[in-house]
Amino acid sequence: MNNDIDQLPEQAQRRTLMTPAFRIATAAALALTLAACGQPEQDATIGQKLDTAIAATEKKADELGERAEATADRAQANAAEATRDARVSAGETTAQMGDFIDDAAITAAVSARLAGDPDLSAIKIDVDTRDGKVTLSGPAPSEAARARAAELAISVKGVLGIDNQLVVTSS
């Protein structure tokens, strides 16, 4: 008898014949054939074969359920790790934002101090802050005014250093 299975390579035939679905289908076909022949003495054997096939199917279903559970557990662990990573990343971003806000606050405070000084309020001094280091640039009417601007800037809370680039202009 020459059918499709005979034309498959031997390894593929064995793999096909070993699948639970193929076994169940074979057992069911055998059961129906014997039932149609009216051979009651074979009922016990058919019943046993069906029971075996059902047990094998249930076992496979249990195995698949366990694998699905394990996969779900791994997915949950991966999600938790991703959440932790996102929180750490968000924390780093918040810290960077805090640095930016601190630099902006320092710049504003230094500018306010300079504007409040009678000798410095009339001149335009540019203030830039990066990581707590303040850079002063622009003109200064005298060396004393240049030094006073640096003193005012360093007195602001959070200032870590001064780069005094003020240029004394003689009038």
Rank of each mutant, 00 (worst) to 15 (best):
S170H: 11
I125S: 00
A95S: 10
A153L: 00
G132R: 07
S121A: 15
S171L: 05
C37R: 13
K60V: 10
N164T: 00
A61D: 04
A36Y: 12
A147G: 03
A79H: 08
A27N: 11
D43N: 13
I5V: 14
T19K: 14
R148Q: 15
P20Y: 03
P118A: 02
S121Y: 05
T26G: 07
A95R: 15
D51N: 15
A90K: 12
Q165F: 05
S155A: 15
V127C: 00
K133V: 15
D131H: 13
A104C: 04
A122Y: 05
E63P: 00
P118R: 06
K133T: 15
G98E: 15
L120H: 07
A140R: 06
A108R: 03
A77Q: 14
L8G: 01
Q165C: 02
N164V: 01
V156I: 07
E41R: 11
E151Q: 15
P40N: 08
E66W: 07
T26Q: 09
R67W: 09
P139E: 11
G116M: 03
A21T: 12
V168G: 02
D51Q: 13
Q96D: 15
D4H: 10
S89R: 15
T93A: 14
N78K: 13
E151G: 00
I154L: 02
A150V: 01
D4W: 14
I46C: 04
A29F: 06
D163R: 08
D102T: 15
A79G: 03
R130K: 12
G38H: 08
N2W: 07
V127K: 04
G161E: 06
G38M: 02
T52W: 11
A21Q: 12
Q7Y: 10
E92M: 10
D102P: 02
V88H: 11
A86T: 06
L30A: 11
P20Q: 12
L50D: 04
T169Y: 03
K59W: 08
C37G: 15
L166P: 03
R15G: 01
P9Q: 08
G47I: 05
G98Y: 09
A80I: 07
G138L: 01
E92S: 09
D43M: 08
K157D: 09
A12G: 00
D163H: 07
N164A: 02
T129R: 03
L136P: 03
I106C: 01
